[in-house]
């Protein structure tokens, strides 16, 4: 049986990991390669690198980082942040990224997803969606949740699936940073409505939240950052707990 995936997310700036990483056993907590290797050894199923660099040098620096990670790490990883063209994706995949994640560029120009899936295959195209529940409706937001759009989360996700997305990474802006659990109700609706896998993000605070996101939220994978970076939750402990709760994991 296919297992549920646990995915640590690393923020990257100028080729370095930023904020929220507190590993005393790392020689260099800012080195994405060292951190990725450590996560791979500790049982992470995949990694996501989210690049928040805003400079001109971005593309080159990111490609170099991707190459270094790919040389060392033997689990799959996704790269996201500011990807807006076929060329962007080509560079990242050629340097060894397994998947890319596209967010606001898909909102600005939805055809991009058709182009990317036609050229590279759906399996490596993840569409990231940040959404917030406003007056009962889940609306897609841009710029890390700051700018609302009039797109409905579920309709937008469906459209992305139809255009060739291989996976949806849904971050609930209502839950993100709260450590009160994932947006399980919305996740369950999304997971039932779509045929492609759903990665849940936003709200992880304890191990029960992960059990809930798989059993109630029906997510295929769960992504989190700070609970892993600050060692509040060890991935191995988490997976043992999930297995005790009847959830299939890789251990």
């Amino acid at each position: 049986m296919l297992t549920k995936r646990i995915i640590p997310c690393l923020d990257i700036k100028d080729g370095r990991t930023v904020k929220g990483v507190n590993f005393i056993d790392l020689r260099d907590a800012g080195d994405p390669v060292e951190l990725a290797e450590l996560y791979a050894k500790s049982g992470a199923d995949e990694l996501v690198f989210l690049d928040i660099t805003a400079t001109e040098q971005k593309r080159k620096t990111l490609a170099e980082m991707v190459r270094k990670v790919a040389e060392k790490v033997n689990i799959p990883f996704t790269v996201g942040g500011g990807i807006s063209s076929v060329e962007d994706v080509d560079i990242l995949l050629k340097n060894g990224a397994d998947k890319v994640s596209v967010n606001s560029s898909a909102v600005k120009r939805p055809e991009l997803i058709n182009e990317l899936s036609a050229k590279f295959g759906s399996q490596c195209i993840t569409v990231a969606i940040d959404a917030k529940q406003v007056n009962g409706e889940w609306l897609v937001h841009l710029v890390g949740g700051k700018v609302p759009t009039d797109l409905n989360l579920f309709q937008w996700a469906k459209e992305m699936e139809e255009r060739g997305a291989g996976e949806i990474l849904f971050t609930s802006m209502n839950n993100d940073g709260t450590k009160t659990g994932f947006a399980n109700e919305a996740l369950a609706v999304l997971s039932s409505a779509l045929k492609i896998p759903i990665i849940a993000s936003g709200g992880a605070g304890n191990m029960q939240h992960f059990t809930d996101v798989f059993l109630k939220g029906k997510a295929d994978a769960a992504l989190a950052a700070s609970v892993f970076h600050f060692k509040e939750i060890e991935i191995k402990d988490l997976k043992e707990e999930l297995r005790r709760n009847g959830i299939e994991v890789r251990l």
């Binding site: 045929k195 896998p197 295929d220 994978a221």
Partner: peptide
């Protein structure tokens, strides 16, 4: 869900390709 993305088990291993690999080992599939 299609595509199948993630880690699943391999079993009934019948080749020297799997020397040193245990039944029900996990591999990554997409």
């Amino acid at each position: 869900k299609v595509p199948q993305i993630g880690w699943n088990r391999i079993y009934d291993l019948k080749s020297n390709l799997f020397d040193g690999i245990k039944e029900q080992e996990f591999v990554y599939l997409v």
